[in-house]
């Protein structure tokens, strides 16, 4: 559902943002890993992009970025594609008026979305037998990655919000200054 409160990102912005996310995942993510936990830039961008775009574009970008992640990483092909498709669809279908009430809600929403993505991925890996200890993975990977992705997602969100502020309806611009 389209909304009247969040700015709408242009297709060019989505494409450029996606490419930058892929490059960051390849070049930067391994270098900024803390305690062997590397951030997932593609998840971060797919979540934030879904907050700024409609269902079709968000779902398509989620699927493509997920597939790219699966090709770059060493998990099962299709696993992250499925996760990002579902997460991006769910976010883009939400009533975004509720999300844009305050920065706290937005930050919390990003964190919850990152958590949903990571926990779904962990569950998938457990189901197909790639991860034999779900609860240990939950503590060692899901939680740290969620926090990391939440922080990075917030930065991406601020950038997208800033760059797309002119796409927001005039009546609401004052709220985001």
């Amino acid at each position: 559902m389209m909304n009247n409160t969040m700015p709408q990102a242009t297709p060019v912005f989505t494409i450029v943002g996606s490419l930058i996310s892929v490059l960051l995942q390849l070049m930067l993510a391994p270098s900024i890993a803390v305690f062997e936990v590397a951030p997932n830039f593609l998840l971060c961008f797919a979540v934030v992009n879904a907050m700024f775009t409609g269902v079709i574009r968000a779902t398509s970008v989620g699927f493509i970025l997920g597939l790219v992640y699966d090709l770059i990483a060493q998990g099962a092909l299709g696993a992250m594609a499925l996760v990002l498709t579902i997460v991006a669809y769910a976010i883009s279908s939400l009533n975004k008026e509720a999300i844009s009430i305050s920065w706290t809600i937005q930050a919390l929403f990003l964190l919850l979305s990152a958590f949903a993505g990571e926990i779904l991925y962990a569950a998938e890996l457990a189901v197909i037998g790639y991860d034999d200890n779900f609860w240990l993975s939950f503590g060692m990977r899901v939680i740290p990655t969620t926090i990391y992705c939440g922080l990075i997602g917030l930065i991406i969100f601020l950038i997208m919000n800033r760059l797309n502020k002119n796409k927001r309806p005039e009546i609401l611009r004052s709220k985001f200054k």
Partner: peptide, 14 residues
């Protein structure tokens, strides 16, 4: 679209 991508992902995973 969601359905198509989900099926595609599951097929790829399988």
């Amino acid at each position: 679209l969601l359905l198509v991508f989900c099926i595609l992902s599951i097929v790829l995973m399988t």
